[in-house]
Design a protein around this nucleic acid. Structure first.
Length: 574
DNA sequence: GCCGTTTTCGGCCCGACTGTTTTCAGTCG
């Protein structure tokens, strides 16, 4: 939970930007958003910067000047920003809910508020259902339809949090509990242990000599907003960020059975229990029992073995066929983080990233990898500061220079080039062929028909220099539905053309998704795990991509990152 | 509100897409 203040401040500045835009203030919203973005991707705790270097240090953050620096200081000193408190009163209380509806921005939300007094998602839904919105100027049936779709989409996220956001919090609490001398064992169970892309709450299992001390510690952590319950075996809290955390105290001798039970999934556990009954056994969170005799429970291996099964990795426990395979001892050997030799799809300050080529390369090397592929945006996406042919050639020379300096490490020259609406790539082949790795991605025209989108992508696959198809469905979790595309055709052609499909590891992308990966791997399509890192700190997202690969049953041989640099270059050579 | 080898004042990535319009505004990235 370090750098929590960075996040809080970024959120406040984004909110200030929205309010100012609501009030038709020019330019300031942009300034606040720039600052917010830069605070978000700061590698240091902003509190430390302020403590060590004061206002002057804050002003060195790009996008932060006199005014915003003072507001940061005010927040760190008092916990509040007066200006923000004042501004908040100028907009309807739940206004920010409206902005979460895709396609609804500040201007149109404002019209809805002024004309129909809509101030919350609930009001909005009601007005749309009663067809009041389509009667407004500049809104028609289509807008109303889209708003209703948007509302159900927002609701669909139903309080679930991204794994990438929850994981650091869970790990932090786990570490704190581990440091208590009474604690013998701690593990985060539940959907986090299964590495599901979104999670509802955090489940932590603990064995301890003194349960009360642990429970007291847990319920009085500084981030706790509310204690829902506190007992000898179970306590529940709600953190200030609204995330629920459950702590369960488990006897050491039942640990495996409890861990199995609290890891789930529910479907997996139900299937296991049925299987146990068939073998005249009983499985519960206290162990595997034959009559009254406990025959397993201390660890998970024991539990699975007692049921006649191979140990099943948490990422597979969704009742998607893993139990059947485990009974035949035929489970796949899932790819491990240590199998990964290099990192793909990294952005730098040449396009829309924060860090230089050298900084990214040094960081990746420091993490123990053999290579990194620099893939800045290539083409016409002006917002992303895309590289055209000329700048890309320049960047390639810059990479050569850094490469010469690095020992036992390679920087691959790459690009994340736009796949244009007509299926062509946005950069000339004469330049693409000079690159080591070319990722093609769709960044526009998300609403095309399935037929058009599929045609567009398949056409791109004909380009002889394309190696990887980036974030193949374009979905953003809780923000944007995947575009319509016939994935089976995409997989088929990817296999035929030997194009790898990406798992974009960014927390709200994880695209391909676990289920899509499973389909792709089934069809023997290669997988490329990319970070899509736009800053050094984003490199940690890579492990989310690996988990997604594991949840998609991918093995070492399915993932091109498991090639060493020479094997990879050979694969990429056409 | 921020920023500066075009500027300490006057700019502020801008094009594609959508739904609405008949020449455009809002949204998105």
């Amino acid at each position: 939970m370090d750098k929590m203040k960075n996040e809080e401040l970024a959120k406040i500045f984004y909110a200030i930007a929205d309010i100012l835009e609501f009030k038709n203030v020019q330019w300031k919203p942009r300034a606040y958003r720039t600052a917010a973005r830069s605070i978000e991707s700061l590698s240091k705790d902003i509190e430390d910067i302020y403590k060590e270097e004061g206002i002057k240090g804050l002003k060195e953050i790009s996008g932060v000047g006199e005014g915003i620096a003072k507001k940061i200081a005010e927040f760190l000193e008092t916990g509040k920003i007066q200006e923000y408190e004042r501004l908040k009163k100028k907009v309807p209380k739940h206004f920010e809910e409206l902005l979460k509806v895709p396609g609804l921005g500040i201007k149109r939300a404002k019209i809805l508020h002024e004309k129909l007094h809509i101030a919350s998602l609930k009001d909005l839904e009601k007005a749309a259902q009663e067809h009041k919105i389509s009667k407004l100027e500049s809104f028609r049936e289509k807008s109303e339809e889209n708003i209703l779709k948007g509302i159900s989409f927002v609701k669909g996220s139903g309080g679930r949090m991204l794994l990438g956001n929850a994981l650091p919090i869970a790990t932090e609490i786990e570490e704190r509990l581990k440091s208590l001398k009474e604690v013998q064992k701690v593990i985060v169970a539940g959907s986090i242990r299964r590495r599901k892309e979104t999670i509802r709450d955090i489940d932590i299992l603990v064995s301890a000599k003194n349960a009360e001390r642990v429970t007291d510690f847990f319920t009085s952590m500084k981030e706790v907003n509310r204690v829902l319950g506190k007992g000898p075996t179970k306590s529940s809290i709600i953190l200030k960020n609204n995330l629920q955390v459950d702590l369960r105290i488990i006897p050491l001798e039942d640990y495996g059975a409890a861990l199995q039970y609290f890891t789930g999934s529910k479907e997996h556990s139900v299937h296991l229990r049925k299987l146990a009954l068939k073998k005249h056994l009983k499985l519960s969170e206290y162990g595997v029992f034959k009559g009254k005799k406990k025959i397993a429970g201390k660890n998970e291996e024991e539990v699975y073995n007692a049921l006649g099964l191979q140990y099943i990795e948490p990422e597979l426990r969704e009742d998607k066929g893993e139990i059947e395979l485990a009974s035949q001892k035929r489970l796949p050997q899932l790819v491990l983080e240590k199998d990964i030799k290099g990192i793909l799809h990294v952005h730098t300050s040449w396009s829309d990233g924060i860090n230089s080529i050298e900084e990214m390369a040094e960081t990746v090397k420091g993490l123990g990898y053999q290579y990194v592929a620099i893939c800045d945006h290539g083409g016409n996406l002006k917002i992303a500061n895309s590289l055209d042919e000329k700048r890309l050639l320049k960047q390639m020379k810059a990479i050569d220079l850094v490469n010469k300096k690095m020992k036992d490490f390679s920087i691959l020259k790459g690009s994340e080039v736009d796949i244009l609406k007509d299926g062509n790539l946005a950069l000339k082949n004469s330049v693409l062929k000079e690159l080591d790795i070319v990722i093609g991605s769709v960044h526009s025209g998300f609403k095309s028909s399935e037929k058009e989108m599929t045609k567009r992508i398949l056409k791109a696959f004909d380009n002889p220099y394309l190696h990887v198809f980036g974030h193949p469905t374009g979905r953003m979790i809780h923000k944007r539905e995947p575009y319509s595309v016939q994935l089976s055709k995409v997989f088929e052609k990817a296999k035929e053309r030997n194009i790898a499909l990406e798992i974009d590891s960014y927390p709200d992308r994880l695209d391909l998704s676990d289920a899509n990966v499973k389909d792709a791997v089934n069809k023997k399509v290669k997988i490329a795990i990319g970070t899509d890192a736009h800053a050094k700190e984003h490199l940690r997202f890579f492990s989310l991509g690996v988990s997604t690969a594991r949840r998609g049953w991918a093995t070492k041989k399915d993932v091109i990152n498991c090639f060493n640099v020479n094997e990879l270059k050979k694969f990429l050579k056409r």
